[in-house]
Nucleic acid binder design. Structure first.
Lengths: 204, 204, 204, 204
DNA sequence: ACGATCGGGACATCCCGTTCGT
DNA sequence: ACGAACGGGATGTCCCGATCGT
């Protein structure tokens, strides 16, 4: 047996390697040869599964990035009792993650990275990223609306604006951490964001 | 003397063209040949003023980006009466700017773009960008501290954390606008940030 | 038995598709993947019937091109009463063909195309093509010789030279039509060739 | 001095090498790397003078092929006394050329080669080749018309048809020689063509 | 008999930088 | 101070063919 010859598994390996390299070097900075080198595959294998570099990038967005948001945000919010607490828990989870893997701080947020780089250059990327942001902000917004109905969240609040503001701020903070490389400051900044979120609680 | 002036002028033209292309395509995506095409110059001219592509990128950061922050933030803050009002004025200025030039929304923030792309890849960029962020946050932090001394700003506030949070949030919001392409929502998000800033006022 | 028939049918489909693509793009310009795309087959199927691209090209020459010459020239000449009339009839048939399918004019003569492209590059092609030309010119030459014996054709004529001249001229004319794309002019040129052929009649 | 650094000369070297390789392998079969290998130049040099492979091919047609026809046909015909004699002289010149350089027989006619290969595939090639054929046939046609006025050529002759027929036949014969590789037969075939040409003389 | 997966070399082109000149 | 010519490595993609399976 020369190789495992498992198509789905090979595709996955390619996708993972692409994700890592795109995460680090950006889409434009990522080189196809690097993917081959890290996976140990040959050109033919890669171009059997993906028609070109662009479709590789699209697949990473559609499958991996979409999935991460689903897992970390949308699923927890869908079945939560209190959106404010849930959001704060998720944010704190990011802080813990960074404290355990401080080297990840230099990489930033995969979704934000590709978004900043490619949204203005390639319509295909833009559409895909927009879709992710829509579902993401939609999930937060919906959770906040339900929180308003339950009396947990301030009534005079535009849930969609608040949702986008949270996401934007968080991404901004993660981006700032790229330069700062300071886990403590990162924690304090997310703390400030949590303060803002907590400020959305209904006062009785 | 004329030659000297022409030389300086040529250098400036190169720098401006580089800024535009770097702003749009990223540093890695920017091609030296494009600079030559837009300026109408030849290789010899460019490499007379800059030793290589990297030094071009560094010069843009050191001279142009640094200067923009100085102009828009540091100078106004240095001689301001009230930091809170000044910051809000600056933020609103960004909103006005975006409403007048909505096509700029797709480009994002030059400083943030280059920072997200290169801070993790090139130490030289990282150091330069860090320096800018330091002076920027330093200026805000100083202004807030003076505001505390004047009784304009809450006493229980860590000025440096607040400063970085403001900047991070703003950059995050500008980044989000890249995908959304929605001037109204951008205004509301900056509005939410202004609310946060206004919340830092001392209560008496 | 059914499998056998399917197999033979598949081989035929491959061969036909190869002929079309080779006819249009040349042997070197023809891509194996195009054959698979037009036939809907996979690599495995093709390489089951043919060992490589070269053998595909050889098969087209041996089976299809050979067959066309046989059908259009050798068979009619073998059982003809008067070679001169038969040749003129065949030539006029080409004119009619072109007038009905003017789009074929841009394709030229399959045999000539492959001959011009590959005879000097690949010995295998050259041998196969030479064989076809030999049988072709042989058939014409034989018919002319019989015509001489019957007193239909000039005695002072080298039948083999005349045969090759006819074929060469015709191929040249078809080739010229590729650029001209003019059905009327094509008819006139073939007419001039027919005049030459008619001039070979014995005078009494 | 590293190299001659003579731009025009370098361009010429590239063009000559391209001509040779295109002549032998066809346009599609020609490889850019071969040009670099034979000229000893680097990629940058070639792509400084020609934007891509296509423009190289076009330049060979426009400059070299055009020039050859000019030199061998148009100029001699422009100032000739008798077109029939001049054409026969030119044709015989080709026979002599082939007898001196029999290895050229396997290469065929450069103009015909590229025409058969690319006229149907690339509009740019087709236009350029058409232009050459037009000026070529036009020159012969004009010379024959003048011959008619001088009483040297049959009155009942369509000069343009005769011109194209000559060229077509000649190209067909040269093409046939590619397979035959027989200098004697080539001479006889051109002889047959000369007979046709001589038959166009006015009878008095 | 045919399909899916994969290997790997070749190819055209891009693109940064150097070296001449003037 | 700037233009033109050139060097040469890197890159994405093509494309032939081999090797699995069923």
């Amino acid at each position: 047996v020369v190789a495992e010859r498992n198509a789905e598994q090979t595709r996955e390996r390619i996708l993972m390697a692409t994700f890592d390299l795109m995460f680090k070097n950006g889409y434009q900075g990522m080189r196809v040869d690097q993917i081959l080198a890290t996976t140990g595959l040959a050109k033919g294998a890669l171009y059997h599964h993906f028609s070109n570099k662009q479709s590789l990038g699209y697949a990473v967005v559609d499958e991996l990035l979409q999935g991460r948001i689903q897992e970390f945000w949308i699923n927890p919010l869908a079945e939560c009792d209190n959106p404010i607490e849930t959001i704060n828990t998720i944010l704190q989870g990011h802080v813990n993650e960074m404290q355990c893997h401080p080297e990840q701080m230099a990489l930033g947020c995969p979704l934000n990275n590709i978004s900043q780089e490619m949204a203005g250059l390639d319509e295909g990327f833009k559409e895909r990223l927009e879709k992710i942001y829509d579902t993401w902000t939609g999930a937060i917004s919906d959770a906040l609306t339900k929180g308003q109905q339950k009396g947990q969240v301030k009534q005079d609040l535009e849930p969609d604006v608040a949702a986008i503001f949270m996401i934007s701020s968080m991404q901004g903070i993660i981006g700032a951490a790229k330069c700062m490389q300071n886990a403590d400051m990162f924690g304090k900044l997310i703390g400030a964001l949590c303060d803002y979120v907590s400020g959305l609680r209904a006062v009785n």
